[in-house]
C-alpha cells in the first residue's frame, strides 16, 4: 500500500493545517461560540431575573389561587391569568388553525397561480401589522357595535378572535413552508400510482409535514401568549374567571396583561408578583415547546434517516 502512493508523496504539502488556516479556524470558531452565547444569554437572563425578583411570591398556591387583597393581587396567585391565557389560546387556535392550515395547503397546491401569489403577499403583509393596530381594529369590529354590530364588549371572545387573526398568517406561512419541504419526488411517487391530489395531500404531504405544521401552530400560540397590546383594546383584564365570554362581564384574565398591570402599580409586593408571573409564563412557553418536540418524535416512526 505504502509503495503505491510513495511517488506522489514528495509533492504533497506539509502535514497538518497551515498557520493561516489554524488562525482562521480559531477566529471563526470563537465567533460561532460568541454568537451562541449572545443568543442564549437573554433566555438565561430572563429566567434568572424573573426568579431572583419573584422568588418570594413563588409557591404552588401561586398558580392555584385567584388574586385577592387590596390592591387586588397583593395576596393570592395568578390562576385567573393562567385560565384566561388558556381560554384565549383555545379561541385563537379554533379560528386560526383551520383557516391557516387550509390557506397553507392552498398556497402549496396552487402556489403558482395569480390568486395564490396575491394571497401570499397579503398574508405576509398581515405579519407586519403592529399588534396595537390589531387591537384597535379588533376593538371596532368585535367590542363595539360600530363595525359589524357584534358589540361583544371587552370580552374573551373579542380578544380571542383578534389574537386568532394575528395567528392566521403565521400558521399559513409555516404550513406552506413545511409542505414545500416535503420532497417533490415523494409527491410524484404517489401521483404516478394514480392518487388524486387530495389523497396525496391527506396520505403523504400532511403526514410528512405534520411536525412543521405543529411547529407553526406553536409559534402562533407562543406569539399570542405574549401579546398585550391587542388585549388592552379588546379584553383588558379580569381578576377572576368569567362565566361568559361576551358582554360587560366577559373579560378574561391574561398572564401577559397581568404582568403589565402589576408592574404599573406603585407596590413592591405587586412587582414581585409580576416577576413570578413572568417566570410562570416563561415556563409555560418552555413546556409547550418541549411538548411539541415530544409529539414530533412520536410521528417519526417511518421517517427517512437524516
Amino acid at each position: 500500500m505504502q509503495g503505491r502512493w510513495a511517488v506522489a508523496e514528495p509533492q504533497r504539502p506539509a502535514k497538518g493545517l497551515t498557520l493561516y488556516r489554524r488562525i482562521r479556524n480559531f477566529v471563526l470558531g470563537s465567533l460561532t461560540g460568541i454568537a451562541f452565547l449572545v443568543a442564549v444569554t437573554p433566555l438565561l437572563a430572563i429566567i434568572y431575573v424573573a426568579y431572583d425578583r419573584g422568588k418570594e411570591a413563588l409557591s404552588l398556591s401561586f398558580v392555584t389561587t385567584m388574586p385577592s387583597g387590596f390592591p387586588v393581587g397583593i395576596e393570592g396567585g395568578v390562576l385567573n391569568g393562567i385560565a384566561g391565557s388558556v381560554i384565549l389560546i383555545v379561541l385563537a387556535s379554533l379560528l386560526s388553525v383551520p383557516v391557516g392550515v387550509w390557506a397553507g395547503l392552498y398556497l402549496w397546491d396552487q402556489g403558482h397561480t395569480r390568486l395564490a401569489g396575491a394571497t401570499r403577499l397579503l398574508s405576509d403583509l398581515l405579519l407586519g401589522v403592529p399588534s396595537v393596530i390589531w387591537g384597535v381594529v379588533g376593538y371596532y369590529v368585535f367590542s363595539t357595535n360600530t363595525g359589524f354590530g357584534f358589540h361583544w364588549g371587552f370580552s374573551g371572545l373579542a380578544a380571542g378572535l383578534t389574537l386568532g387573526f394575528i395567528m392566521i398568517p403565521i400558521v399559513t406561512r409555516v404550513t406552506e413552508q413545511a409542505l414545500r419541504d416535503v420532497p417533490r419526488s415523494y409527491i410524484e411517487g404517489a401521483l404516478a400510482l394514480g392518487a388524486t391530489r387530495f389523497q396525496v395531500m391527506r396520505d403523504l404531504a400532511i403526514p410528512a409535514a405534520i411536525t412543521g405544521i405543529g411547529t407553526g401552530i406553536l409559534l402562533g400560540v407562543l406569539n399570542v401568549l405574549g401579546q398585550t397590546a391587542p388585549l388592552v383594546f379588546t379584553n383588558y383584564y379580569n381578576t377572576g374567571i368569567p362565566h361568559s365570554l361576551v358582554g360587560s362581564n366577559g373579560s378574561v384574565g391574561d398572564l401577559a396583561m397581568q404582568i403589565f398591570i402589576y408592574i404599573h402599580e406603585p407596590s413592591k409586593a405587586l412587582h414581585v408578583k409580576a416577576m413570578a408571573a413572568a417566570l410562570v409564563l416563561t415556563v409555560i412557553v418552555l413546556l409547550l415547546d418541549m411538548g411539541i418536540r415530544l409529539l414530533s418524535w412520536g410521528s417519526r416512526r417511518y421517517a427517512r434517516k437524516a
Binding site: P183, Y186, E188, G189, D203, L204, P207, Y302
Partner: peptide, 8 residues
C-alpha cells in the same frame, strides 16, 4: 423514478 422514493 430516478431516485428511490418510498413513502414514510
Amino acid at each position: 423514478f430516478q431516485k428511490p422514493n418510498p413513502f414514510q
